[in-house]
């Protein structure tokens, strides 16, 4: 049992805790903030099931982005879909490989190329298109670099310098039962895992919140029925009940 293995074990526990608790808290925060007005971007669905379908089209096909810009859509869609395949493939490190997971392995393996291609496309736009360069902060470049680093280091292990994946599996399954198992002594693996841990740690405090956030976006998740169903927020209702126009009148008296 090496010092590095213990360090990485602790790192992943902390990272997982930060990710789960951080994102959970943020989601709870969003649910607690009122939406005082009906603001769906119309034309919008007039039923709840219509909203589910709209959201499905947004998060699966990136419908609005497709309308906006075909290049961004292409790169973003390829990256996200490839990421899903890669993530699914990685569940092998946490559970037994069944028929489905086995079937997915080659797809997940080669999806890594698509993932890095998509990310590279997004990075190229950020550098080459003057409008996108203007709106980019250092963190926007770093986020892409981080993901590309994760992709490339992972591909190195799959296609160039193999690592002992049975040991890796033992390490992570061990963490799940609070039991330390050693990691293989592979520098590329350590780089890969470090970058993944960093990604998990920054998730709840960065723009990666777009993933859970999109589901709470009122312009996309509201039903277009304001004439049929009255929508009032709690703080607006307080004004109504106290028969006041301005909130400071309520507070003061």
């Amino acid at each position: 049992m090496t010092f590095v293995s213990i360090l990485y074990g602790l790192l992943f526990w902390v990272a997982t805790l930060v990710l789960v608790v951080g994102v959970g808290r943020r989601i709870y925060f969003y649910t607690q903030i009122s939406v005082p007005l009906k603001i769906p971007t119309t034309p919008a669905p007039v039923t709840q099931s219509g909203v589910v379908w709209r959201m499905f089209r947004e998060v699966v096909f990136f419908q609005s982005l497709f309308r906006a810009n075909k290049y961004i859509w292409l790169f973003a869609f390829i990256f996200h879909m490839a990421l899903w395949l890669v993530l699914l493939r990685h569940t092998r490190y946490f559970m037994e490989i069944g028929a489905f997971l086995g079937f997915l392995q080659p797809f997940g393996k080669y999806a890594s190329f698509a993932m890095v291609f998509g990310l590279a496309g997004l990075l190229a736009r950020r550098i080459l298109v003057d409008r996108v360069r203007y709106i980019s902060a250092p963190s926007d470049f770093l986020m892409l670099a981080l993901l590309i680093g994760i992709g490339l280091s992972g591909m190195m292990m799959t296609f160039v310098a193999h690592t002992d994946i049975t040991m890796v599996k033992g390490f992570f399954r061990g963490l799940m039962t609070f039991d330390f198992h050693p990691l293989p002594a592979s520098p590329i693996l350590l780089v890969h895992l470090l970058l993944v841990a960093i990604l998990m740690l920054v998730f709840p405090i960065s723009k990666l919140l777009h993933a859970p956030g999109v589901f709470f976006s009122p312009t996309r998740n509201q039903v277009d029925n304001p004439r049929e169903k009255r929508h009032v927020s709690s703080w607006a209702l307080e004004l109504e009940k106290k028969n006041q126009i301005y909130r400071d009148e309520v507070k003061n008296g």
Partner: peptide, 21 residues
Amino acid sequence: HRYRSLQLYLDICVKCGACTD
């Protein structure tokens, strides 16, 4: 704290550039 739209939209923009033009 009173407009979820504001809080959410300040948080989740990824600067993809789709809106820029």
